[in-house]
């Protein structure tokens, strides 16, 4: 029995976001390790593409924010609150142990507390990522940010550290995407909108 869970707009923006994220990580790796990962030709090209996808992801985020807060008004589904902490602990117990002994999956709302935590932290971490990124893009306009970090070298360093955070959480996101009814259930759901009913 399939259930319609993801409307078109969240699905589209989700994949646009995912594509931008992956391109940003790849172009960023080229910029960071130009002699080891030179996949976009030149640093100039990698930087150019990096800014293009940065702009895309910023406006994509703006559109998604508008959608969740003013159109679907489902922001309560994805914001992590203090009351979610006990549920989060139950969930962690399940992911670290129960899932391997085929224990029943704990039941939550549309998104579980772990998802809520991730979906709440991502936009928060996006703020310093956005600021450091813009400091590297327009160092004079954002000289205040450069001064906070005491120099462009440190701005780069923190921009990179936050990328590591995003890359790791992306891997967790991809893994947890396989924990649905079947391995690809959630992935198919994110494409067609339909998932196995719970």
């Amino acid at each position: 029995m399939k259930e319609y869970r993801h409307p078109l707009f969240p699905r589209l923006t989700h994949w646009l976001h995912a594509f931008c994220m992956i391109m940003l990580i790849l172009t960023g790796l080229h910029i960071h390790w130009p002699e080891w990962i030179p996949m976009f030709g030149s640093i100039s090209m990698a930087r150019y593409m990096h800014f293009i996808f940065a702009w895309l992801i910023i406006w994509c985020y703006a559109a998604r924010g508008y959608y969740y807060f003013f159109v679907s008004k489902k922001y309560r589904d994805i914001i992590f609150r203090i009351g979610d902490i006990p549920g989060f602990l139950t969930l962690m117990k399940y992911y670290l142990y129960g899932i391997f002994t085929h224990a029943p999956k704990p039941k939550f709302g549309k998104y579980n507390p772990g998802q809520k935590l991730a979906y709440s932290i991502w936009p928060i971490v996006f703020v310093p990522q956005f600021l450091t990124g813009f400091a590297l893009y327009e160092p004079e306009m954002f000289s205040v940010v450069v001064d906070w970090f005491s120099g462009l070298g440190y701005v780069r360093f923190w921009h990179f550290i936050l990328t590591i955070f995003y890359s790791i959480s992306l891997m967790a996101h991809l893994y947890l995407g396989t924990t649905g009814a079947t391995i690809f259930d959630y992935y198919i759901g994110m494409i067609t909108g339909y998932e196995e009913a719970k």
């Binding site: 800014f51 940065a54 406006w59």
Partner: peptide, 27 residues
């Protein structure tokens, strides 16, 4: 710089931004 480049990144950003904001307002 990149030879033959026509659209600068901030121009692209402005256009996409205008489209997004326009879409939001229209909606």
């Amino acid at each position: 710089g990149i030879p033959g480049l026509k659209v600068k990144a901030d121009k692209f950003g402005t256009v996409v931004g205008a489209a997004t904001v326009g879409g939001i307002i229209a909606h």
